[in-house]
Amino acid sequence: MSGKAFFVDLTKCTACRGCQVACKQWNKLPAEQTQNWGSYQNPKDLSATTYKVVHMKEIADAKGNLAVWAFFPEQCRHCIEPPCKLTADAYDNTAIVHDPQTGAVFFTEKTKALPDFNEIREACPYNIPRQHPETKVMAKCTMCLDRVQNGLLPACVQVCPTGTMNFGDYDAMLAMAKKRLAEVQKRYPEATLGDADSVRVIYLYPVDPKKIHQYAVASLDLPLLDRRALLARLTPFHRPTV
């Protein structure tokens, strides 16, 4: 396979959040107003101004004791066949572009003219796309295309101290991922690679990815439908049911 890929080795992540901040620094994205919600993690979720969030989750063993404190720097997977682009192409095939050299999936300014953001979001098996509430431009990780095209590493990869974030040619990253998986299986018997053949951001999960995050691996659950249904239950008098 041509193009580029990330290999994200979660067995090495210390959640220092260098990547989360470096992403904002390079892209000059504003901070969000947050509150502590009983977690080290903030912001709670991705947004049009947060392309990368390090999720932190305490996973218990059968007795209810801490088994793993899992860290998951979430970002766009830059799918090899990106469904967001397939969906957007029906309206404007230049709104979401697919860089031929790297395979980066890139949301352009033109995404603001797409008729239905939810359609794009629901197309994503990882629940990544977000829309800016004012400009209506859709946003997510850009693979730091500007850096990569000039021979620099993506900001989140260069900043990573532990070797969690890696970037290079797709084949090399996949090989690295497979080699590392074999190495860590003794310490982490549940370790697995996430959707390695269909994405350009290959995560190595130390435990079952579903325990770490609902959309860690491609999911057929439609996130927005879930959310709408939930919202409908919570506020039956204010919103029409879907």
Binding site: N93, V97, H98, D99, P100, A104, K110, T142, L145
Partner: peptide, 15 residues
């Protein structure tokens, strides 16, 4: 051609 490969002018401007 395996990729979409359109709209590069925009990403170039961005870059």
């Amino acid at each position: 051609t395996a990729f979409g490969g359109l709209g590069l002018d925009l990403s170039e401007a961005q870059a």
